[in-house]
Nucleic acid binder design. Structure first.
Length: 751
DNA sequence: TACCTCCACGTTTTT
DNA sequence: CGTGGAGGTA
């Protein structure tokens, strides 16, 4: 009998879903599979159907498999689809993000991991604050050693699986960074906090060190299924390997052509390593695309074909060719934006939903001009990438109070709120506490609790300590939303924002936090008491038992879970409000999404591909993959637009068209306007400055003029100086960058 | 302590 | 051109 959920799959999809797995072969890991799934080829469907099939056919129990994704959204989607196919409760399944699953594991085995029971998770902001604090304490010059770079260094090292002592310092800079890293780790341990990368690293170390524990999980997870495998970094791959036993089958789905997070340590090498380490016999390719029309796919295939390092695949569709790609060349960024607005309005009038259109750009800075134009035209739009709910100032303050109540050694939390709202604890008082803390190697909270402070500090800080302890005592045993309610009231946050002029929104967000907590409790009650106990291991190691969890969840546990949730799932980048809004986002954010119509704006050398990427080893190839992602977002209509001049960093820049135009067959492109000429643009009042050179020759050289040079190829005149025979122009060449040329000698041809 | 002014900086960012 | 952080001043 064929399960209903298998119907409608195409041949390779079906093959992937029903690939024999398990102990058929004797070789370790055999049965593992790599699914090379192109954009829009039904990757998520294959992954979830595979899970359903494994369970339905009795090859796996819901508890015996592990499903890993990168985003919370993908994890939710996966669970949703599984429960649509099978009548099972997905709640206790180990399906989640790398970080979420690591968090779960570390909570269950906090002693083995060497962590306090209620360890807190630092988000990016918290982490940076800690690094800064530490560097100040260590007297490190933050000019020579910028804290951001230290943070980057630490995360990069952790993503490689390296502790400070494993880093080899080649020079003074890395030596210093390593020092900071070591101190940072010590401090985190002292405070009982972990950053994102630490969740992974700590899990890996625990599993490596603790044989019974590792064997327990290896034995339990017979099937490991990984989404977006091309985005895994070394550490994540190591984690997956540690969880795979001799009986385990790994099912990895990914697309090397959509690997766009190399700058964060993701490496497609993992795909090659995977084939080798897990004895993958056959790579299944999903190449039929269900999203886009043929011309769009042809363009994407042609473009990505310029990359050298590929596993190789070609998308195709059974749909027609559709429309050509529309290319619009504007004189200025303002004109480009105006074009987008007009076209969006036209499409809307044709019946295309605003929410089914997106404007993509390479970098966030490009959104401003677009927003401005859209706002003036009263087109509703939504920009991705703003502050998320749990990252808002008032929410961070509230969370800091909660963190302090749960786990007082959290210095970052203490520093955030010890004088917010102001309660007369100035820098001097805090300094006193810090001195005591560092002298004795204890947390700020512990230092504040000692009676060693003098003068004004003693009483004000004593009052703060009492405040926190009172709130803790008063909320003991209360449901989470009431705890938060109480805290907002008694911490003084409510009072503070009530007096603020712009406090209304913030107060609203604080109420929203209470709602979020209520929702969290409702959604997770089973998880808290029901799931963790089965992680019990009967092994001769000291390990907490299920008994710890069988009673109803302690207030602290619920609070800690909620705080972890807040850190790991900071919320949507912006509320879903008004789905009928044009979507504005970076190409990175667009990954995984699709739209009827897509505008890729800023198709210029220096912007896309980004100038900084050209220097990096795999930089251009990653930019091309990024472009590939951008192209494949569109279902029916695709616009590529560029501006000859654009305001960037307060200066007008003149860029040439992106090289990616030359990598797409001209037959697929339709240029929908004549190349604007600068004179005309100027006449229309656009900022195109005439060249200050004396035009003795009669050739109307102008700033922004596109030219061709016999040796350097195409470029744009960027600036000029001198007159007559002395006249020189600076030209921005596509391949060779900026060059100064004597007008009299260089044989420039206007384009 | 709060506000203001000046200066430096300016890819991408699932967790 | 805008922003955010740091530092100075009322």
């Amino acid at each position: 009998m064929t399960p209903a959920f298998l119907s409608g799959l195409n041949e390779p999809q079906l093959e992937a879903v029903t690939l024999p797995a398990g102990p058929i072969a004797r070789q370790a890991f055999s049965g593992s599979a790599l699914i090379l799934a192109g954009a829009g080829s039904g990757k998520t469907r294959v992954l979830t159907t595979r899970i359903a099939w494994l369970i339905q056919t009795g090859q796996a129990s819901p508890q015996g498999l592990l499903g890993v994704t990168f985003t919370n959204k993908a994890a939710k989607e996966m669970l949703l689809r599984i429960s649509a196919m099978l009548p099972i409760n997905t709640r206790g399944m180990w399906v989640g993000t790398f970080h979420g699953l690591c968090n779960r594991m570390l909570r269950a085995h906090y002693r083995e991991a060497g962590l306090p029971q209620l360890f807190q998770i630092l988000d990016v902001q918290d982490q940076l604050a800690l690094v800064k604090r530490l560097m100040k304490q260590m007297n490190i010059d933050d000019e020579r050693y910028p804290p951001r770079q230290a943070q980057w260094f630490i995360n990069a090292a952790k993503d490689e699986g390296k502790r400070a002592k494993a880093v080899e310092p080649h020079d003074e800079f890395t030596r210093r960074m390593t020092e900071i890293y070591a101190a940072y780790d010590t401090q985190c341990q002292r405070e009982g906090v972990v950053d994102f990368a630490e969740l992974l690293l700590r899990s890996c170390e625990m599993l490596t060190r603790n044989d019974p524990l590792r064997e327990h999980y290896q034995d339990r997870f017979r099937h490991l299924l990984v989404d977006e495998f091309q985005d895994t970094n070394r550490l994540q791959y190591q984690w997956l390997k540690l969880l795979s036993g001799r009986q385990s089958c790994m099912f990895a789905v990914g697309d090397d052509d959509q690997s766009i997070y190399g700058f964060r340590g993701a490496t497609t090498e993992n795909m090659r390593h995977f084939e080798r380490d897990f004895h993958v016999e056959k790579v299944i390719k999903l190449e039929q695309n269900y999203r886009s029309h043929g011309n769009i796919l042809d363009a994407a295939n042609a473009l990505i074909g310029h990359n050298q390092h590929r596993l190789g695949k070609n998308l195709w569709t059974s749909e027609g060719k559709g429309e050509p790609l529309r290319v619009y060349e504007a004189a200025t960024d303002l004109e480009e934006a105006a074009f987008v607005v007009e076209e969006v309005k036209a499409l809307r009038n044709e019946g295309v939903g605003l929410g089914d259109m997106a404007v993509l750009y390479r970098s966030n800075a490009q959104s401003r001009v677009l927003e401005h134009a859209l706002f003036n035209a009263s087109v509703s739009y939504r920009v991705y990438g703003g502050l998320r709910f749990f990252e808002r100032q008032e929410i961070k303050h509230a969370l800091a109070y909660l963190r302090l109540m749960a786990q007082s050694d959290d210095d970052g939390a203490l520093l955030r709120v010890i004088n917010f709202p102001t309660r007369g604890i100035g820098a001097r008082s805090i300094e006193q506490v810090q001195t005591v803390a560092s002298e004795r190697g204890i947390s700020l909270w512990a230092a504040a609790c000692l009676n060693t402070l003098s003068g004004k500090a003693a009483s004000s800080i004593g009052a703060f300590v009492t405040l926190i302890e009172k709130m803790r005592a008063a909320t003991q045993g209360l449901p989470l939303p009431e705890i938060i309610e109480h805290m907002i009231e008694h911490s003084g946050l409510r009072g503070y924002y009530q007096n603020e002029k712009e406090g209304a929104d913030r107060l609203e967000n604080l109420s929203e936090l209470v709602n979020a907590a209520a929702a969290f409790v409702t959604e997770n009650d089973v998880w808290l008491v029901g799931d963790i106990p089965e992680v019990q291991v009967d092994a001769p190691v000291a390990m907490q038992t299920s008994a710890d969890y069988e009673t109803s969840p302690r207030t602290d546990d619920v609070l800690a879970s909620f705080l972890a949730h807040a850190a790991l799932e900071a919320g949507d980048h912006q509320a879903e409000a008004g789905a009928e809004a044009l979507q504005l986002m970076t190409v990175h954010s667009a990954k995984g999404l699709e739209f009827h119509a897509v505008f890729i704006s800023g198709m210029e050398e220096g912007l896309f591909p980004h100038e900084n990427s050209i220097m990096e080893p795999d930089g251009l190839e990653e930019e091309r993959r990024l472009m590939y992602v951008a192209l494949t977002r569109a279902r029916r209509r695709l616009y590529l637009s560029l501006a000859q001049s654009r305001m960037l960093h307060g200066q007008t820049r003149y860029n040439v068209a992106s090289r990616f135009f030359h990598e797409i067959p001209e037959a697929l492109l339709r240029r929908i306007n004549a190349r604007p000429r600068y004179q005309e643009a100027r006449a229309r009042g656009n900022a195109v400055t005439p060249l200050s050179v004396d035009i003795a020759t009669g050739i109307p050289w102008r700033i922004g003029q596109s030219v061709i040079h016999a040796k350097f190829g195409t470029g744009v005149i960027v600036s000029a100086e001198g007159r007559g025979a002395e006249a020189r122009v600076q030209v921005n060449f596509r391949s060779d960058g900026l060059k100064w040329l004597m007008l009299d000698y260089a044989k420039l041809t206007p384009v």
